[in-house]
Design a protein around this nucleic acid. Structure first.
Lengths: 209, 209, 209, 209
DNA sequence: AATGAATGAGGGTTCATTCAT
DNA sequence: TATGAATGAACCCTCATTCAT
């Protein structure tokens, strides 16, 4: 009975800890996270966390991996099969921005891990495999567009992805400081129009000549 | 003897606390920062921090403000007076990237503050004034380029700045996670070439038609 | 082995904290009390105090309540069933004085709480119930004596209790200042004779005419 | 120019410290008092307190003495010259109650000193002299009343004073705990009527037969 | 006579972690 | 498998006191 929710079930406990941990770390960062909060949110006792994971660091590492797994899952929704190359790029940019807007917790996990110097992610050995999906798709689009003469040649998919991610990540990640520093509202409407500009930004970069 | 470290000098003590605090917060974030470390690095006793600032939160707020002040100072080096519009833009992009590469502590301060929801920066009332320099310069370049027919019309300087900042911020801020996830080295050479691509990116965005 | 000090016994730990706290607060007052001392006297670690009570204030409130509970317990020894009215009053006065002499810690708790403006006791909702025993007894004695023509009518038991408590409380509570200010020894013998005078004091007040 | 208020005046500084100290100690007790608060209230710097008094203990001792001095001053208002003996007693009781009601800070000083075991007052060598006024007056009234046949013989003035002080001190000192424990309002009106009962109490105690 | 500058020692409280069952 | 009980180490902060002028 694999779907039945039961107590005294190791797998279920582990999973609920992981979920709670991801939520905690992606809300207040590593140093701000409390093992107590995780236990309470997971509905289990604190020692169980140590039984399953060892220490706070290990819980964090597992939560970071879980973050990537969850993000990969939601990226799977992406589908360009029937789109023309330029439209596919525009769609990818829009999707990426929406993605960050809908999953700000992932941004916090990334910032947290970078604050820690990437110590944890370096030890996750299959992380490349987990995240390669999007870049592969991007490579296909680039190849197709190039063959059709719509895109320049020589564009590296990873490098392009860094640009796309940059223009989508930054205004979401830094929303509070941007709001304070610039005389712009940075509300939903602004981000909507920013998405359109960002797509244009990328498309112009790819256009031949 | 101008190099002698003064004792019983309030202004000097305050300043050394501020410097040490900025270093501490921009290394380990707010929750990870230790008042003890700040005191030790500043070469003063812990209570003095409380005498001058009140509590950890206030020290952090002062350090955040100091971060913006220092960044403004280093941005003042920027000079486009004798540059042609397109070159000015390329130069600005290059400068911005160098800026983030040379001052990673500023990135950490921004991420830290955004993790905290912008609570502190909202209370710094002159922060807009502190940071407006760069956007003003950018506006001048855009106006000049547009008049010369080199740039499209209707580009908002703040919006453009967000793009420039994005493509310069992201690969520096997220260097550790990017390194782990993608099969790229992300070393100095990569960032150098990224800078060139980024300039091209922006220039193509501005180009008419 | 019933005398063995149990470890890992929540109820016992809580109780030992309470006892130690009552002792500490009733020795040096609230501001002078040290959580450290309480922990040490209770034979447990400091954090356990916070686990069980929350903070120093809550420990104090619990100790204050415990003070009233303990006092009520020792007041239960009182028995006037077979005593004639006047003798019952004399006995009550004597008992009350002995009570304060034997439990000076209770006086300190009361003074401490009054110094704090009664903040804690106002939140103890069953305190009236805890303390009503003595006044009820006093009411019965008054009623009986009045019916027998030995006491005046119209004496309120609470008001009378305030008088009895006053003359028993004051010389015990203020023993050190009285000793210094007046040329009297204020030793045990003095307090013994004071008790007799106090009984006379009260009886004369109740006597008809 | 002895009345002129001036800075850099040792005597004036000392006095303002004393006043501020008395206020502080008689508000929050010894352990709760803060040297900082005293300095601020006195309008002088903290080190000056140490220059003039030595340490917190010494400031407290001086404040305690000052408390007695001030109380003696306000007791000097008392005048029974033209009063008949019984009326004089009633008047004295009323005065004593008013005295405690008007000077609750004195009560707190007494409780504070008794909490400390009388350590400070024992070292104030002229305290008996300071406080003897009231008891002497009481002795005169007793002698006169006894001679007139209105009072019993053999009443010791100090012992009588303890009774009077008791019934006036207790309901003022313990107002907060009494309010919580008993179903009485203990407001100004109650204290007014309590004063009348207290006078009756004492008078009946003195009455012959 | 007076004070701004500074601190050692300790205050209450929190937190990751372990023990005992 | 799971947890209630417990704690060492540290954290932020305060306070009486001293230094240097």
């Amino acid at each position: 009975m694999p779907l039945k929710k039961m107590k005294r079930n190791a797998a279920a406990s582990r999973e609920s800890i992981l979920k709670a941990a991801l939520k905690e770390f992606s809300t207040v960062g590593y140093a701000g996270a409390r093992v107590d909060n995780i236990a309470q949110a997971a509905g289990i006792s604190k020692p169980l966390i140590y039984t399953y994971f060892g220490d706070k660091d290990a819980v964090y590492a597992a939560a970071l991996r879980e973050a990537y797994v969850q993000i990969r899952e939601s990226e799977k929704q992406l589908n360009f099969e029937n789109l023309e190359s330029v439209e596919a790029i525009r769609s990818l940019v829009a999707f990426t921005l929406e993605h960050f807007r809908n999953n700000p917790w992932f941004i916090i996990m990334l910032n947290t891990e970078n604050l820690r110097g990437g110590e944890a992610i370096r030890k996750i050995h299959d992380v490349e495999h987990i995240q390669s999906h999007l870049v592969r798709k991007l490579g296909e689009i680039l190849a197709k567009g190039e063959k059709e003469g719509k895109f320049r040649a020589g564009i590296d998919p990873v490098e392009l992805y860094v640009f796309i991610a940059s223009v989508c990540y930054f205004p979401v990640s830094n929303v509070h400081t941007l709001r304070a520093v610039f005389a712009i509202s940075l509300d939903d409407a602004w981000l909507d129009s920013h998405g359109k500009r960002a797509a244009e930004f990328v498309v112009r970069y790819l256009r031949p000549l």
